[in-house]
Write a protein that binds this DNA or RNA. Sequence first.
DNA 1: ACATTAAGTGATT
DNA 2: AATCACTTAATGT
Length: 215
Amino acid sequence: MIESTSQKEQIKEQIGFLFEEELMQEIYQVGKIKKIPADSILVDNGDEILHIPFVIDGSVKISRDKDDSELLLYYIESGDTCTMTLQCSVTGSVSEVRATALEDSEVLLIPVMYMENWMNKYPSWRRYILESYHSRMLELMETVDAIAFMRLDERLEKYLTDQAKLTGSLEIHHTHQQIAEDLHSSRVVISRLLKQLEQKGRIQLYRNRIVLGSI
DNA sequence: ACATTAAGTGATT
DNA sequence: AATCACTTAATGT
């Protein structure tokens, strides 16, 4: 239950234009706001999905996690939701992915029991869910393309610019190790490629910090 | 001052 | 492009 007026305002701003007023009222009734500190895990591999998370502030990274190694799939920004969790909510299965907050973020949690009901009751909800599936699928294909057709150095540059666009900052606060994990490579390789980019004048390197020259 | 963690580098596969 | 082995640099206690 969302009571605070300011929180309602914030939700309305992020997703209000998507849904009719009646549905918004239901969302206020059953939704809960949760704050997610940067780098904390929202949903992990194998977790049972009881709520559908909508990102209303910040951004979340969705990654595959297998045998201690990771691979970044895509990001979720404000107003979006993760399709994997939608899938799980319907089938009652567990999550196949991990969701990590990229920065301090806030999510709106909706218990899954309302999902099907809303699918029938609200066309706007149905449309939103289908569109969400579609765009997540497109993003996934973009990552598949990148893995299949781009060299690692190109992928790294794309990773850096994507990250910058997402956070609206030219500074990236990740270690080389973390970047290596996202790209499913090794720290040494990433360090070398970053060094090359620095020598080309594209970026500047510091400890725990990378500054992009431009996007 | 010392320990820990992040980043840089040559050599090898 | 990955891994090993090692060095150097930055940061925390």
